[in-house]
Design a protein around this nucleic acid. Sequence first.
DNA 1: TCCTGGCACTCACCTGTACCGAGTGCCAGA
DNA 2: TCTGGCACTCGGTACAGGTGAGTGCCAGGA
Lengths: 338, 338
Amino acid sequence: MLSERRLEVLRAIVQDYVGTEEPVGSKALTERHRLGVSPATVRNDMAVLEDEGYIAQPHTSAGRIPTDKGYRLFVDKLAGVKPLSSPERRAIQHFLDGAVDLDDVVGRTVRLLAQLTRQVAVVQYPSLTRSTVRHVELLSLAPARLMLVLITDTGRVEQRMVDCNAPFGEQSLADLRARLNGKVVGRRFADVPQLVQDLPESFEAEDRATVQTVLSTLLETLVEETEERLMIGGTANLTRFGHDFPLTIRPVLEALEEQVVLLKLLGEVNESGMTVRIGHENAYEGLNSTSVVSVGYGSGGETVAKMGVVGPTRMDYPGTMGAVRAVARYVGQILAES
Amino acid sequence: MLSERRLEVLRAIVQDYVGTEEPVGSKALTERHRLGVSPATVRNDMAVLEDEGYIAQPHTSAGRIPTDKGYRLFVDKLAGVKPLSSPERRAIQHFLDGAVDLDDVVGRTVRLLAQLTRQVAVVQYPSLTRSTVRHVELLSLAPARLMLVLITDTGRVEQRMVDCNAPFGEQSLADLRARLNGKVVGRRFADVPQLVQDLPESFEAEDRATVQTVLSTLLETLVEETEERLMIGGTANLTRFGHDFPLTIRPVLEALEEQVVLLKLLGEVNESGMTVRIGHENAYEGLNSTSVVSVGYGSGGETVAKMGVVGPTRMDYPGTMGAVRAVARYVGQILAES
DNA sequence: TCCTGGCACTCACCTGTACCGAGTGCCAGA
DNA sequence: TCTGGCACTCGGTACAGGTGAGTGCCAGGA
């Protein structure tokens, strides 16, 4: 186990490195932090920390920089979550209030997060399956063509075209709409498949096929792949990444375009609380030099989706975590109100 | 006026520079192109072209690179639009077919364009005001709370919450829905304001305020700012931009996040045909070293929105223009079918 | 046992110099 | 009007030397 002072040294190294972006040496450390010991002692501590794998030297005769393992220890043991200042809180409120619809909420959130953390922000739309049904609408567009519209309590709206083989009467349509809503409104989308299972049976034989088509479209919409959407913002912040640009930034941009990768990334967030994935802890190779701070959000106690930021492993963890948490909470409130 | 051969020299310079990304000298030119004259002659021609402002020298003792004016001449007079190869055509078809809804169409289009051109793609959603109304739906979510859903013939769906002061009866709701649809279905959204103008008068006094609220929400949705949406993709291609990264890429990423800027960019597209804006021809400063190739698309003859790509001024104009045009046409077809 | 000051060593980085070569402009001759 | 020849320019690279931040190690002191 590392002594108290060595932990203190590690903390100082992380803080300085995050601030200056340059390897930090023993002398500079003692000057900028009141460690109460001499550079020589710090050097000894550094040697130990390096042996243990918490810090590393880019090259001999350079200062030390934290390793992923070092950041991990820092995040777990040495750093808290820095609460936002009250101007920041007010900024959040100001920025998010007045969103007109869910797209707008998500869009504002992503911009806000990017701005607060000065990093790349990723916000997932509230998941369908975790939301409850507010309304299901069926519209007849053409004799044998329907439009299915799903509306969740979180304000998300999803629509699908349904091509039927046979024309479907106005009356049957109203009937289906009413019965469908009767069954599912207020229930969770995850439960919808069971709830509608025996619905076709209650229809006349001639309409049964169409009802079945409508229902399968409904169920398809709930399938993982189509139901997960997300929004990204603040990619311009990637330019602050480092000096060795193309190599670092490229894979990150590529990862950001791969929705699947991102979803997996956020998906690994454990239900409650915040998750921090540092460098190589990220399964995706292109993100090996980035950290991801993510958290679930939702109205009430329920987590309906996740949001987070992607930045260099050398990031201000306490500040970032504070911002992400605060925004997530506030968005949760907004969803609850709407 | 420039002689035939000098134009030929300019064309060769543009082609070589686009290919190699390096200033091209007189000797290299004569070796790679059958100009039928010696390097010395080419040098003289280059001197003229430079005087006229079509090419420039980064520094003495370096080759020449085209200026914005040079590219402009190249695009206008020297280059055609390169038609796609048939594998490419098939790829487009394969890629776009099977989109489930409008979001999907736009998403696939943006990825396709980015992939084909290896540049950043921007696709605008079909404009509301230029589309026609397929259906307007009104749902009662709570006694004094309605949801308004607009559906266009291009498949776009837009929803808004409407908070009413007074509860609105089921009957009145059905009434409003029917009358509203009767008035506007099949008409262009741009005409909706006039069409619904006298609608409140035909309602009982007690409902009139609510009807008015619904209508103003409807009209608000048609306002420029909220009605224009777009999707971006292929930002990873920015890394191929140049060597002087941070300075070039940063403002571009920032511009891409500024929807307003992008919309203005696309907005300048003239109605029919393709627009190419080269370097400083772009009003926005951050895009001064990029070119924008854009084109309108739509079902039938109508232009309902625009799409385009953003890339370095040093781009393969004929190829890019070919790809953009082909994709726009195909998307138009898809919209017409749906 | 732990901390400290001192000391020799390492090595990235900066600076200055020299050189190379692609590319140019100009000019005289075909 | 085109061409070959020639002197010149200047960015890029390679090499050498100097500088300084930072290190590891060690002997002495609390």
